[in-house]
């Protein structure tokens, strides 16, 4: 296994969000719910716990920057808050035992926190006028549900991948 596979995995995760957005059958909910995919963040958090925290922070910086530039066009949001989320997660997993169930709750907490930070930021720069309660019901719950589903499907493969990377060159 070559060392290049780790960045390759992260790049694939980075693009997976927008590819999911392209082919997500939006008409099912008729726009009533707005679930946002955060597959890259989930991958990054797996990396921070099962591979190496500092590498994950660096990846968070780099890909957060790309995220801001290429997708959201609000520079700085992902760039700073992805590493912050990684940092918080590494602190949380130190106190709590990292079983799949507890890590599931930590990840959902992280995504909720991240969503709220980005919501606040968007409210601040007037990119959105949605008030807090519609935000929670229209966006936060569906987002958590979507990412919870993703976690359930991909937790084991992701953990195995990062553990393999760690054994090889950690």
């Amino acid at each position: 296994m070559k060392k290049g596979l780790l960045p390759l995995l992260m790049i694939a995760l980075f693009y997976s969000d927008s590819v999911f957005m392209l082919f997500f059958p939006e008409n099912v909910f008729d726009g009533a719910y707005v679930p946002a995919p955060h597959f890259f963040i989930i991958g990054l958090l797996f990396m921070s716990v099962f591979y190496d925290r500092n590498t994950a922070i660096k990846y968070g910086f780099l890909f957060g920057f790309l995220f801001d530039l290429f997708y959201t066009e609000l520079l700085g949001a992902y760039l700073f808050f992805l590493p912050l989320i990684v940092y918080i997660t590494s602190k949380l997993t130190k106190w709590l035992q990292s079983t799949f169930v507890i890590f599931f709750i930590i990840i959902l907490f992280d995504i909720a926190l991240f969503e709220m930070i980005v919501y606040g930021l968007n409210l601040l720069v007037q990119r959105t006028e949605v008030s807090f309660e519609p935000f929670v019901s229209m966006r936060l719950y569906p987002t958590l549900a979507l990412n919870a589903l993703y976690y359930i499907l991909f937790a084991i493969p992701l953990r195995n991948a990062f553990q393999k990377f760690k054994n090889k060159f950690g």
């Binding site: 969000d17 927008s18 590819v19 999911f20 957005m21 392209l22 707005v34 946002a36 995919p37 995220f67 290429f70 997708y71 959201t72 066009e73 609000l74 980005v118 919501y119 968007n122 990119r127 959105t128 966006r139």
Partner: peptide, 15 residues
């Protein structure tokens, strides 16, 4: 051809 859509979904941008 549309190659990407902002996955953040706060702001409707496509590439």
């Amino acid at each position: 051809t549309v190659i990407a859509r902002n996955p953040d979904r706060w702001y409707d941008l496509i590439t």
